[in-house]
Design a protein around this nucleic acid. Structure first.
Lengths: 218, 218
DNA sequence: TGTACATCAGTGAACGCGCGTTCACTGATGTAC
DNA sequence: TGTACATCAGTGAACGCGCGTTCACTGATGTAC
């Protein structure tokens, strides 16, 4: 529990004409608060204001209310996740390696930033959204990138022909389970993330697994 | 938002010697509150007391505090889920049919009682536990039942020999994804639960899919 | 070159609310003698 | 058979807290004339 004094007490007001800066500062403060949130408490407008070093009312200068603020944070974090997935995919050349890289980037994002991941994919958190409109454009973009990666594998002959949308949905479900259950049940003896991802790729997409240098088959 | 008046205003006090009844009444009231909870708000001790028709202080007659109450609700709901899974498995004779029945029962429990499922498997909810000890005996029992079902399939020759623990972990992850993402992204065009479960069984466990009477292959 | 004024980036103070928890109390029911 | 007492199942009243939101205000900075 942080002290009652603002975290950024040294903040000075933005220069005239730069008032919009506070908007991003508030989004960043909310992201920072969520980074390692394990508790069940919803994001608090007053905590965000404290994190940004401003009074609670100042949030209303840029957002219509708490729901609007949360929606902006969701959009910001979805963009960050999409960027991470695209960057990972770009480092691979092969369609299979691209799909694998995107899957691993998805899991890594979720495991490194559990609060952000939950904000995007946990229904308790997405229930904070105002209005609760689904699917969001950002969420649809994340799915579309996976679908394209799966389709490329099929077209390259690296995966059997199948209903690509259904394959992608099952793959997404598998990846979500890998991430979400690991946070939910940290005491469970989970296999390595890489091994689980490989099982999903082999079993759900149908990709043949070629053991790499750091794989040790029994 | 319910009215400020208690939901069960007609409640009369339990007869002498039957004070323990209130304990279960409180657990039931909490379960009822969670049944269709979509919001991000944590379970509230005062709301539980209102639901049971007693004053907030009465909770302390049976529980040390909010955390203790939540832990009791978790144990109660885990028991209900285990019962549902066991009952579903008992209706099937074949090892594969037993495993499938348990998987479908798992998904059905999660989809019919999202608030209960989240209490057991969402880290935001499990984070309410006091103390946050994992794995809980009840959670371990749920996993063990799945592991046994997978092992029976392997021993019966209905699934290829593999690391049964790793197979079960990946299957669990897949089932969790089927349930959790469906609540998180209700606007997404999800395939039918049965089809996704069949994909998980075929791909992750290695069970051969034989089309049933209500399956319509393209 | 000075001055009145508009704009901008915020803040001071307060509102009513629900929360978890504590302390002292009540009133019915059983039991000892 | 009557009565004092213990036990039991709760409640009355209050505490301090953080929450989202509203209204009026401040003080610095730029602009028109």
């Amino acid at each position: 529990v942080p002290a009652a004094t603002p975290a950024a007490s040294a903040r000075s007001r933005n220069p005239r004409g730069q008032g919009e800066r506070l908007r991003q500062e508030l989004i960043d403060a909310a992201s920072q608060l969520l980074v390692d949130t394990r508790a069940d408490e919803p994001l608090s407008l007053r905590a965000v204001a404290r994190g940004a070093g401003v009074a609670p009312q100042s949030v209303y200068l840029h957002f219509a209310g708490k729901g609007d603020l949360v929606a902006a944070v969701v959009a910001d974090r979805f963009a960050a996740m999409t960027r991470a997935g695209d960057a990972a995919e770009a480092t691979a050349g092969d369609p299979v390696d691209k799909l694998r890289a995107r899957c691993l980037a998805y899991c890594e994002f979720g495991l490194r930033h559990p609060g952000h991941y939950r904000l995007l994919f946990d229904s308790r958190a997405t229930g904070q959204l105002d209005p609760p409109a689904f699917p969001s454009p950002a969420g649809a973009a994340a799915y579309t990138a996976f679908l394209a990666a799966v389709q490329r594998c099929i077209q390259a002959g690296r995966a059997p022909a199948d209903d690509a949308a259904a394959v992608t949905a099952s793959l997404w479900a598998g990846l979500h389970g890998i991430v979400a259950l690991r946070w939910s049940k940290p005491g469970f003896p989970w296999p390595a993330v890489g091994q689980l991802v490989e099982r999903m790729l082999a079993g759900l997409v149908g990709i043949q697994h070629r053991p790499g240098p750091d794989e040790h088959p029994p």
